[in-house]
Amino acid sequence: MPHPGWVSFTFDGIGTGWEISTPSTLSADIRQRLLDVVTGYDAAWSRFRIDSLVATIARCPGRYELPAGATDLGRLYGTLYRLTGGAMTPLVGGSLAQLGYDARYSLRAAGPPLPAPRWEDVLHWQGSVVTTAAPVTIDVGAAGKGQLADLLSAELNACGHGEHFIDASGDLLNRGPDPVRIALEHPADHGQGIGTVMLGPGALCASAANRRVWGEGLHHVLDGTTGSPVRSVVASWAMAGTAMVADALATALFFVEGARLQREFDFAWLTVYSDGHAEFSADFEGTLFS
C-alpha cells in the first residue's frame, strides 16, 4: 500500500492488472464509473478485439472519429515520431503481429520483421479524426496505459476523490499527499531491484525488454523503421506530470537519448543499456545500487 491506512480497489483492464488506492472506500457507483472508463477505452483502442474501433480501422481505410483524448494522444505520438525518426510510431501494430504478438496471442512469428508503414504515407491524424489511405493497425500501447491512468484519475477527481494512487502493473500515478519510495526492477531479474526513487505528485512509468517476451530474442519494443526489437536498451524509467507522457517517454528512451527528449519535454529519466551501463538525468532523484 503506497499510503498507510488507504484502501484498494483492484481489477483487470486492457490486458493488465490495476490497483487504485484512496483514503476511503470507493462506493459501488464510483467503482462502476471507473470500470466504464476502462471498458470504453478498451472498446476504442484494443487491437486484440475484433469489435474495437482500431480493428475496424485496420479492415477498412477511411475517415474515423476517435474518442475523447485522441487529440492529445495524436499530438504526443506525432512529436515522438519526429524525434525518433519514425522508430516510435502508432502504426507498429502490424509489425508486432508479424512477429507473433497478434490478436490471437499466437506468439509465433509469421515471417521476418516487417517495418511499419510511414505515417506520412498512410495516416492523417488531425485532432480527434484519423483518415487512413490503406488498412493499418494502430497500436497506442506505448502511451495508452498511461493515458487510461490519467482518465481514471480525472474520473476520481470528478467524484470527489482527489487524493489517490494508481498502480497500472508498475506504471504509477501519485495524486496523494506524500511522496512514495518506489523500487526499480532489475531488467534481468524480476525479484531484484537496481535502486529506488521517490515519486512525488506525478507519474513514474517504465519500459523493459524483459516484459512481454516470446520466442528467441523477441519482445514488444520494436523499431518501426525495421520492425525488429530494440537491442541497445534493456530498461527505462520516466517521471512526468501525467502518466500518458511518462508512459510514452519511457518507450521513447529506447530510441533517443534522454537529454535530447528533455529539449521538448519536462521529465526526469533513467535508461539502462544492454552493455550494463546506465544514464540518467540530474533531476532523477533516486539511488542506484552498486
Rank of each mutant, 00 (worst) to 15 (best):
A250M: 11
E185F: 14
G276R: 05
V140K: 02
W125E: 04
S106K: 10
L53H: 00
A252C: 12
A203E: 02
P90M: 07
V256A: 09
V92M: 09
V256S: 10
G62I: 03
E65D: 14
G85F: 01
S153R: 05
M244R: 07
W237C: 05
C205H: 11
T89N: 01
R175Q: 09
D102S: 08
A246E: 08
V245T: 11
A58W: 01
D36Y: 10
T71V: 12
A246K: 04
H164C: 02
T271E: 03
G86L: 06
F267T: 02
P117I: 02
L107P: 04
T25Y: 13
R47Y: 01
P229Y: 00
V130K: 02
E279D: 14
D29K: 15
S46P: 06
I14H: 08
I14V: 13
G111Y: 14
G40W: 11
S281A: 14
V129I: 13
A246H: 07
G276S: 10
A44C: 08
F284S: 08
V136P: 00
F284I: 14
F11N: 06
L53M: 03
A149I: 00
G85H: 07
R118K: 10
F165N: 00
S232M: 13
A43H: 03
S95I: 07
T196V: 11
L35K: 01
S27W: 06
H220T: 09
L26C: 05
I57D: 01
A158Y: 05
A55M: 13
G40S: 12
A250E: 06
P229V: 09
I182W: 01
Y81V: 06
R75Y: 13
T225Q: 13
W214H: 08
G227V: 09
D171I: 00
G141C: 02
T89D: 04
H219R: 08
C205S: 11
H124L: 15
H190M: 08
A209I: 03
A109L: 08
A209Q: 08
N210Y: 13
P113E: 12
L151Y: 02
A259T: 15
S27Q: 02
S281E: 09
L76K: 15
T84Y: 08
A206I: 05
V7R: 11
L80P: 05
